[in-house]
Computed example of a mutant assay.
Amino acid sequence: MFHLLQVTTTPIVDSLHKTAASIPPVEEKISMWDMLQKGGFLMYPLYFLLVLAIFFFFERLIAIRKASKIEPNFMNIIRDNILSGNISAARSLAKNTPNPVAKMIDKGLQRIGKPIDAIEKSMENVGKLEMYNMERNLSILSLVAGIAPMFGFLGTIVGMVQLFYGIASTGEYTLNTIAGGIYTKMVTSATGLIIGLIAYVGYNFLSTQIDKTANKMEVASAEFIDILQEPTK
């Protein structure tokens, strides 16, 4: 009786083994946040640098776009007022237009009657101040672009220290022993490079926008000087 029972259950056991073997192993997934946490304490200054880069990028972007907005007919109206002798109307328009070009033109209007060289010099000084205002805080993006990869490199050193310390403490060179150091090394290095790249791209993009605005200022200044040299009506 026992023999018959044993023979009967053997195919069932084999079937269970085959079924278990056919089930694919479940892959363990890790979230991005959990992976970043494995970078250790050096991730916190990297987070701070990322916040700085994002904040000052958008702060400067809004300021530069506001400064670069110039009405298409602004210089035409200024020209008509100057040639008709209505300097007060030209100054009123320049004062009520909040952009660097208008401020330069207003300074030039204040100097009408003086030599052209003096007018150009005063307008140039205003242009330099406006350029400084547009470039203000832009150096922070450049600083983040340089510092963030260095923090990543520091994370590499810290990770290697953790790695060798773990090996020295346990006397074993196993995956579990080196995993912590490898995580710190790779996560901080990658994060630092990504943040540095974001800051670098943002810095160069804003610099390009400032150069475009500076070109508009130069064109307007040259046009204003030409208007002053035209005969009045």
Rank of each mutant, 00 (worst) to 15 (best):
A222V: 08
L206N: 05
V101C: 01
V26C: 12
G39P: 05
I147A: 14
F151G: 03
G181H: 03
I225H: 03
V161L: 14
I54V: 15
L228K: 07
E230L: 15
L129K: 12
I12N: 03
Q209H: 10
T9L: 15
V101L: 05
T9C: 10
K29E: 06
L93N: 12
V201C: 10
A199D: 04
G40N: 09
K121C: 00
A53W: 00
M217I: 09
V13M: 10
T188P: 03
A190Q: 04
G166T: 04
K95L: 14
N76I: 05
V101N: 01
S84M: 14
E71G: 09
K216P: 01
V161S: 02
G146P: 03
A214V: 15
A220W: 05
F164G: 01
I23C: 05
V201T: 14
T10H: 09
L49R: 11
S88D: 15
E71A: 08
V7Q: 14
A67I: 13
S31P: 06
V101E: 00
M43N: 02
M217V: 06
G166P: 11
D106K: 00
A118E: 14
T19N: 13
N137A: 07
A89Q: 07
S139K: 12
G85V: 10
I140Y: 01
F164Q: 03
A199V: 10
Y132Q: 10
I116D: 05
V13W: 03
Y200V: 08
F56A: 04
T188Q: 05
I87P: 07
Y200A: 13
R111W: 07
D106Q: 02
I227E: 11
L228F: 04
R111H: 09
I167E: 08
G202P: 06
G166V: 01
E59V: 01
M43A: 02
T9R: 08
M217A: 15
A168P: 01
P24E: 07
M186N: 14
F164E: 00
F48W: 07
K18V: 05
D106W: 03
N76K: 11
E59G: 00
